[in-house]
Amino acid sequence: MSITLQDAISLITLEADMLDHGDFHDWLKLYTPEGRYVVPIDPDVEDFEKVLNYAYDDAEMREKRVVRLLSGRSISAAPPARTVRLLSRYRMLESSDTHCTLRCAQMLQELRQGRVHDYAANLNYRLEMTEDGLKIALKVVRLLISTEALTAVSYIL
């Protein structure tokens, strides 16, 4: 049976909840070992390895990112920004019994140092069915303002 939209939504809204509540160690477990977390700059790029991105994280870099956010040794993340994000406008682009690709919208509001920032993004996911259930093989965060000047993002989009 193909992976259902409901199963996919359950996983990615769980991820969103973990990120907003700082459950970063649990967040790491949502990815496959080869999984990638990508925040590209160029809105049209697909081959992320060949270009400069904001983030192009394999498992090792994701873990380092989490360590940094929780270490208290980064002045921009001590404490990390607080965030609230909403996911919506889900669309299953492709689905089989082993994997699926899904697109949705994310609206995120960030508060840090008394300042609020809003980030709208299109999220693209590739999810894979593993022995341990559905996992994230690829998450691509396409920020609406990716080609404009950002401010420091000391959390996980």
């Binding site: 904001y54 380092k64 940094r68 921009s76 420091a152 993002v153 000391s154 989009l157």
Partner: peptide, 9 residues
Amino acid sequence: GPMGFGTPD
């Protein structure tokens, strides 16, 4: 960059 391990600090 804005998501690097150095620049935001």
